[in-house]
């Protein structure tokens, strides 16, 4: 299963270890996390479910392309990194 990592800034909003996730797209993986950590959703996504402007997601070493649909494919061996963009501070 892919592993999801969050920026340390967001770990302040996450209590305890993250759940095991399953899925083949960014959306599916994040929905697994948000199912357990509903408050986290509003920090990563806006109210329409798009990635927030100043948040960036890497799938292993590439930047996620579909910031609206979060449909980028994620292989079972890959890692997902939810990061702060440099632009938002």
């Amino acid at each position: 299963m892919p592993t999801v990592h969050f920026t340390s800034h967001l770990k302040n909003f996450v209590d305890g270890p993250l759940p095991n996730v399953s899925g083949t797209t960014v959306r599916e993986l994040l929905d697994c996390v948000f199912g357990e950590r509903p408050k986290l959703r509003g920090y990563v996504l806006d109210e329409l479910g798009s990635l927030r402007t100043h948040v960036v997601i890497y799938i292993s070493d590439r930047v996620m392309a579909d910031r609206v649909g979060l449909s980028d494919a994620v292989a079972a061996t890959e890692e997902l990194y939810v990061m702060q963009a440099l632009s938002g501070g």
Binding site: H9, L10, G42, Y43, V44, D46, R52, H54, V55, Q84, A85, S87, G88, G89
Partner: peptide, 8 residues
């Protein structure tokens, strides 16, 4: 109004 994580 977190620059990264939106209004709260």
């Amino acid at each position: 109004n977190s620059g990264h994580f939106g209004p709260k």
